[in-house]
């Protein structure tokens, strides 16, 4: 295991001195690397980065996001993806290459106000992002409870290999669809289950950077510790002290990062 140094930083803090590669949320100033966000700094062999704890969603190519159709022109839909840039879904993506604005009625395929799961196919900040729904599991979201959370909390809500969200889904008998942009849709047959899942998601959002979160979510959901969903974590025992040192936070964030690398969206099916 390579040596990784971590610390808590605010903007302007010097993370490390020396010849390191700046990865993200850091800048190089002279011989030192400086943080540009509040978060947890990590200095490893591959470079230095800061995992931010706050901020709005900035689109990235291949992110899977949930968006809302705002309106359409004759050639594309405009999709609100909870960011400062609104996305465009070309009509050809839905109707195929022989799309004709005169013949095809765009309003019938996707109406204003519809929620869609989409993937960002192009974005470079100079133009608005382009999205697609031509992929497995993408397309219209028929129904569900709509929640907005901060995009920085998404990896925490998913948990390592989906452990957190699986716990919530199994305990409440719901399905939770999470977009990288912080939009979450909860569906299920039982309205009590949906309510409970929403409460658990809100709890994860508010207490994302506190230790022992999985444990408290389980307490909220009345799940016993040996739930099969959480085999990936070395969960602390039920009566573990609440305010132990902050090491679990860092472990958890590390887990989150793995999620960020691998899994872009979680869908239980």
């Amino acid at each position: 295991m390579q040596e990784i140094r971590r610390k808590y930083v605010v903007p302007g803090d010097r993370i490390i001195e020396g010849n390191f590669r700046p990865l993200f949320n850091v800048i190089k100033a002279g011989n030192s690397i400086i943080s540009t966000r509040i978060g947890i700094a990590e200095a490893g062999r591959e470079g230095v980065k800061v995992i931010p704890l706050s901020g709005v969603y900035i689109p990235r190519v291949n992110d899977i996001v949930i968006g809302k159709i705002m309106h359409h022109s004759s050639l594309s839909w405009e999709v609100d993806i909870n960011s400062c840039f609104s996305a465009h879904l070309p009509a050809q993506d839905v109707f195929g290459r022989d799309f004709s604005p005169a013949r095809d009625d765009m309003g019938r395929e996707l109406a204003i106000g519809d929620l869609i799961t989409t993937r960002i196919i192009a974005f470079d900040r100079t133009r608005d992002p382009m999205v697609t729904i031509q992929d497995k599991d993408l397309g219209k979201v028929p129904s569900g409870e709509f929640i907005k959370i901060s995009a920085t909390r998404v990896p925490r809500l998913i948990g390592k290999r989906g452990s957190m969200i699986q716990t919530i889904e199994q305990a409440t008998h719901t399905r939770v669809l999470i977009g990288q942009n912080g939009i979450v849709v909860v569906t299920g047959r039982n309205s009590e289950g949906i309510k409970l899942a929403v409460r658990a998601i809100r709890m994860v959002e508010e207490e994302a950077h506190t230790p022992n979160l999985t444990q408290r979510v389980k307490t909220l959901l009345n799940v016993s510790d040996s739930a099969p969903a959480d085999t990936s974590q070395s969960a602390p025992s039920q009566n573990a002290p609440q305010n132990e040192d902050l090491q679990p936070t860092i472990q958890e964030v590390e887990e989150d990062l793995e999620v960020e690398k691998g899994e872009k969206v979680h869908d239980s099916n």
């Binding site: 605010v10 903007p11 302007g12 949320n25 800048i27 540009t36 966000r37 509040i38 901020g55 709005v56």
Partner: peptide, 11 residues
């Protein structure tokens, strides 16, 4: 501004 998560060189 730092709380909003905007990239900053310093406070």
């Amino acid at each position: 501004l730092a709380d909003a998560g905007i990239n900053m060189r310093d406070i």
